[in-house]
């Protein structure tokens, strides 16, 4: 294969694997927003907690994969607790929920610093090396991460589109009042989306751990990208989040590979601003007419 093409494909794959993680985080954001209209800005800290919980499990057991198995239910539980203890009181005023989520950032960061120290922590995921596909090196862990994201998002899609629960969820997203009149337990459905959204953050946290380095402040990297992806994909649109996540990852990677790499964030978020000026509800539509 032509060397330039190989290099381009290498950058594209690097971006797809990272973009998959963004998509996962954005899916959680978009689920929660679609039903509660709450902009849950502490999702980055949920990702961070997922990473640290997985790290602790790995350090304790020596089993890297066990970290994933524990982080997901642990984060689901945290999602349940935060919804029951905090967010359910803000459902009538989503802006209050947003402010509360900002406070949660500090609380969760401080908790992580106390438990795990502010110092960087390292992991060494067991899958090392890469597969050579026509000169493009696919890092094994990145391929596995991508496969997990595809499976998880496909499952989310199937649940949303093919199950009674999914129909209820979409009904609540479209019109909570009408859904309630039809006998759908709106509060329970909303609580469940917080649980699912947090569990997705748990999976994303484990994936962030596979990158090698985590700190209690790592959430900031992901929350901005997660929201950018959710906005581009259209708030409330899970398919849009998946595509926009991959798109953002590839855009970042190509910027790092071909233009001034130090300004990668500026190029990418500049493009996000332009897209949102052009299509305020995202490329795939969203927010007003949720596409759950």
């Amino acid at each position: 294969m032509n060397e330039q093409v190989t290099v381009f494909l290498q950058h594209a794959f690097n971006g797809i694997s990272m973009g998959a993680v963004y998509a996962l985080i954005a899916a959680g954001i978009t689920l929660v927003y679609g039903l509660s209209r709450i902009i849950h800005f502490a999702v980055g800290e949920l990702v961070m907690l997922g990473a640290f919980i997985a790290l602790s499990v790995w350090n304790w057991s020596g089993e890297f994969w066990l970290g994933l198995a524990v982080a997901v239910p642990a984060l689901a539980l945290i999602g349940l607790v935060t919804e029951r203890a905090v967010f359910r009181f803000t459902l009538r005023e989503p802006l209050t929920g947003f402010i509360v989520s900002l406070g949660l950032i500090l609380i969760l960061q401080g908790t992580a610093v106390e438990i795990w120290s502010p110092n960087p922590q390292y992991s060494q995921p067991p899958l090392e090396g890469s597969w050579d596909v026509a000169g493009v090196l696919l890092r094994k862990q990145a391929v596995v991460n991508f496969a997990i994201v595809v499976a998880v998002l496909a499952l989310c899609y199937l649940v949303l589109m093919k199950t009674t629960f999914g129909k209820s969820l979409r009904a609540v997203s479209d019109d909570p009042g009408a859904a309630a009149l039809m006998g759908i337990p709106v509060r329970t459905i909303i609580m469940t989306t917080f649980v699912i959204g947090s569990a997705l953050a748990g999976i994303a946290g484990w994936m962030v751990l596979t990158l090698g380095l985590i700190t209690p402040f790592v959430g900031a990297i992901y929350v901005l990208r997660g929201f950018a992806v959710a906005l581009i994909g259209g708030l409330g649109n899970i398919q849009g989040a998946a595509l926009a996540g991959i798109g953002l990852g590839v855009a970042e990677s190509l910027a790092a590979g071909y233009v001034g790499p130090g300004w990668t964030d500026a190029y990418v978020f500049g493009a996000v601003v332009l897209i949102l000026l052009w299509r305020p509800t995202g490329l795939a539509g969203g927010s007003e007419g949720a596409k759950l």
Binding site: V7, Q10, H11, N14, G15, S17, M18, R139, A142, V208, L211, L213, V218, A220, I221, E252, S253, L254, A256, G257, Y258, P261, G262, T264, D265
Partner: peptide, 13 residues
């Protein structure tokens, strides 16, 4: 960027 998590693209460059 200071807060970079995945260096694959920079290394590929």
């Amino acid at each position: 960027p200071y807060a970079t998590a995945d260096f694959s693209s920079f290394v590929s460059r």
